[in-house]
């Protein structure tokens, strides 16, 4: 549970869009085990690769930003999963040993 003093990532995303950028919104939709960021946490990304917010406390942000650029180009949302059982996790893994599911969507 988190309240929203974070006026914040979504506001910044609105500014990017107003300035002619494309943007994507990543949201933590589920976590298993110990994960550093609660469900609902946001990361916003623009088409220059700038980002604000956090979905993991740092370990998978790079991978999410890379996926976000694809999502902006394609214009359709996708779901990402990261965890220690995932092959990829060794590259972009969650050192906390948890697992995390992220919904990544393009924003108009």
């Amino acid at each position: 549970m988190s309240s929203d003093q974070s006026i914040d990532e979504l506001a910044r995303m609105g500014e990017w869009l107003a300035n002619g950028h494309n943007a994507a919104l990543a949201t933590v939709v589920a976590t298993w085990g110990s994960s550093p960021r609660p469900v609902g946490s946001h990361l916003v990304i623009n088409d220059s690769g700038e980002f604000l917010g956090s979905v993991s406390g740092g370990c998978i942000e790079g991978a999410v930003v890379a996926e976000a650029l694809d999502v902006m180009a394609e214009g359709s949302p996708r779901t990402l999963e990261f965890g220690v059982s995932d092959e990829e996790a060794w590259e972009v893994g969650l050192s906390c040993g948890g697992a995390i599911k992220i919904y990544l969507e393009p924003v108009a």
Partner: peptide, 28 residues
């Protein structure tokens, strides 16, 4: 997320109105 929905969401947040964003993960 569509522009009109994003603007309505931000308006609610600025006006301090509680709001839930519901997303169907398959299809969006």
């Amino acid at each position: 997320m569509k522009g009109a929905l994003r603007e309505a969401l931000q308006r609610a947040r600025v006006d301090k109105v509680p709001v839930a964003l519901v997303t169907q993960l398959e299809g969006g």
